[in-house]
Design a protein around this nucleic acid. Structure first.
Lengths: 116, 116
DNA sequence: TCACTATTAAACCACCCAGTTAAATGACGC
DNA sequence: GCGTCATTTAACTGGGTGGTTTAATAGTGA
């Protein structure tokens, strides 16, 4: 239901098989069969994972003869990085005291869409 | 089923309501009722979202009287940032030519768990 | 104790997801 | 055209998820 791109990207990344596929594609374009080789899983399952990654815009697909090779498209990861970076100050120890200070000064503010 | 922490974190982030809750918590600790106020959703639904966030380690919960306030714990986001950063060179335009070069030199390597 | 507030639990629903097997599509080589 | 390889589709299953309503738990305060 939530069709927003960030949710789709996060959902696509929430599976270790799909993340492993992306890692393999980071080494270069390859075929579906070779992508599936490392996994104890049938090829239709791999094909479904690829469809999820494609809908999330994380891979692109070509058509060379009977092969439909995949290549990585890291565009959506840029938005993920941007989102997560906006929380950096919350895990970076160097800003812990600053956080306490800001929280003290600001008190309770109205809810916004993203922090900072 | 995939109980690995990174998958759990990504799955927790793959919902706009939960991301909005995190954004609200970035402004400071607050109660369940106040967290649910901006959403057209019943409180049990909010409570379930909080349980998902808690299992992912993204929030911590206290016990002050009848309130069980939530506060942000961005620890897992650090791992997310680390994972996504390993793909930075694939979306950063400045490295496009370098990518082509590396792909040419490396040819096909064996699949690893993460790139580079 | 009683009424009230804050929060969760239980039971239920519709739907999506990850996986399977079996069959279909499509391109190649002979 | 035929057999073969690469890939996808169809149909099905088990289990998780996001939401609801109703009811239970737990603390506060008179």
């Amino acid at each position: 239901m939530p069709a927003d791109p960030l949710s789709t990207t996060f959902a696509a990344l929430a599976d270790p098989t799909r993340r492993a596929i992306l890692a393999r594609l980071a080494l270069g374009e390859t075929s579906v069969t070779e992508l599936g080789a490392p996994f104890q899983m049938t090829l239709p399952a791999i094909s479904k994972h690829l469809k999820v990654l494609e809908r999330a815009g994380l891979i692109e697909r070509g058509r060379t003869a009977q092969w439909r090779p995949c290549r990585l498209d890291a565009g959506p990861l840029k938005e993920v990085a941007g989102w997560v970076e906006s929380y950096r100050r919350f895990w970076d120890q160097r800003f812990d005291r600053l956080d306490d200070y800001l929280r003290e000064v600001e008190g309770k503010a109205q809810p916004g869409t993203e922090p900072k």
